[in-house]
Amino acid sequence: MKRLDRDAMAARVARDIPEGAYVNLGIGLPTRVADFLPVDREVVLQSENGLLGMGPAPAAGDEDPELINAGKQPVTLLAGGAFFHHADSFAMMRGGHIDICVLGAFQVSVHGDLANWHTGAPGAIPAVGGAMDLAIGAKRTFVMMDLLTREGQSKLVEACSYPLTGLACVSRIYTDHAVFDVGPEGASVVEMIDGLTLDALQGLTGVPLRMDA
């Protein structure tokens, strides 16, 4: 049984992003999805700091400190791209104009509640950024994460113990073990890596799972 590595997870997410989609990729792991979108598929990437049509990182020496992404890294603008201010940027999310956003997570519940902004640990300085707007605003919110923490705890849970980012906002979770759909009916397994069984997956997560035929 071979778990998916980060690139394989990113490639799997990219498969589900259709031609013509307006997409926001969250900071961190989701950013990698951009590398696996086929060049002949027109997908428009939005960056919350104010651009549509975001392109890859510039060549060394071509960086512009005023052309950055949400992670504050230098990027490029593709032909057809546009700049806009912050209120318009978040209107794109809240207003339901973004088709898909892909976010990282600490925990996701079987009903699609998301926790990804704050561990709630004493002394931790909280930072939320655009996570709450993205989670509830996009037409579909995907999460990309390892299924288990380093300590082996499932991050797919019955109910989140960390502070919530949004209620019932996630529709699909891509992990290194399996892809899940979550929602009002609970969690269902879309696909699993070779060698894994539903029983074994159930054992890892500790939550009720079903597999739709």
Binding site: H86, A87, F90, G130, A131, M132, D133, G137, T165, G166
Partner: peptide
């Protein structure tokens, strides 16, 4: 939340008394 920050600033500039936003509900 970042979008609420933008919307609240914009609301001030637009002379609105308040806004109802879905962002942050239940958190």
């Amino acid at each position: 939340p970042q979008g609420n920050l933008a919307a609240r600033i914009q609301a001030a500039g637009a002379g609105l008394g308040a806004i109802f936003t879905p962002t942050g509900y239940g958190t």
